Amino acid sequence: MQDETRECLDKQSGSHSCEGYVTGRESESGTGTIIYRCAVGHRKAAARHAEIRERYPDSSIAPDWFDPTYAGERWDEDD
């Protein structure tokens, strides 16, 4: 839904030139919070979160880059 009273969240940071209408969408992180961004801001946020999900998959199998000996961490609680 377009909201002419809202500014793009990313406008203050200057991370991009805003384009299109500012609309509210649910947060990419899944918190249920509505985030107001322009079309460019929503596309960039979706791409950033896709990269995060790829790097840190929701899986019990650790990615190749994960080293359990570093800082004594575990990928999965069952490890």
Results as ranks from 00 to 15, higher is better:
A47K: 02
T69W: 12
L9T: 08
Q12T: 15
G30I: 06
D10L: 11
P57R: 08
C18Q: 10
T33W: 09
P68T: 07
D58H: 08
S15F: 09
E7A: 11
Y21W: 01
E7Q: 13
R48C: 05
A71E: 12
I52S: 11
A71W: 08
E28Y: 05
S17M: 05
T23C: 07
M1L: 08
C8V: 03
T69D: 12
T69E: 10
S60I: 04
D58R: 15
K44C: 09
E77F: 08
E28P: 06
A62W: 11
H49A: 01
E51F: 04
E77H: 06
E19R: 03
A46D: 06
T31E: 02
L9F: 05
T23M: 12
D67R: 15
E28K: 05
A45S: 14
E54F: 13
A46C: 04
A47G: 01
S59Y: 00
D79Y: 05
Q12K: 12
E7L: 13
V22D: 04
G41V: 01
R37A: 05
G41M: 07
R53L: 12
A71C: 14
R6K: 15
G32V: 01
T5E: 13
V40G: 04
G24F: 11
A71F: 09
G14C: 13
Y70R: 15
Y56L: 05
E54S: 12
A50R: 15
R74N: 14
A47S: 01
E77L: 02
R53N: 13
I61T: 14
P68D: 10
G24S: 11
S17I: 14
W65G: 13
I34D: 04
I35M: 12
R37G: 03
H42C: 12
A50K: 14
R25V: 02
G72I: 09
D67G: 13
D64S: 07
T69K: 15
P57Q: 13
D64R: 01
G41E: 03
C18L: 12
C18P: 08
A46I: 01
D10P: 00
Y70E: 11
G14Q: 14
R43Q: 10
A50T: 11
S29E: 04
S17W: 03
G24W: 08
G30C: 13
S15P: 00
W75N: 02
H16F: 01
Y70T: 09
E77A: 02
H49F: 02
E28S: 05
C38Q: 14
H49G: 00
E51V: 06
S13A: 12
E19T: 00
S29M: 06
S59W: 03
E54D: 13
M1F: 10
Y70W: 11
L9D: 07
G14W: 07
G32E: 03
S27W: 05
R25H: 15
D10G: 11
G72P: 10
S13C: 09
E73V: 08
R25S: 07
W75S: 03
P57L: 14
E73D: 10
R48I: 04
T23N: 04
D67E: 15
R53T: 06
I34G: 11
A71K: 14
A45L: 11
R74L: 06
G41F: 05
S15H: 08
G30W: 09
H42N: 07
C38A: 15
D10I: 03
Y36W: 10
G24T: 11
S15N: 10
S29W: 02
I35A: 00
K44R: 08
G14E: 09
V22C: 07
S17A: 07
A47E: 07
E7W: 06
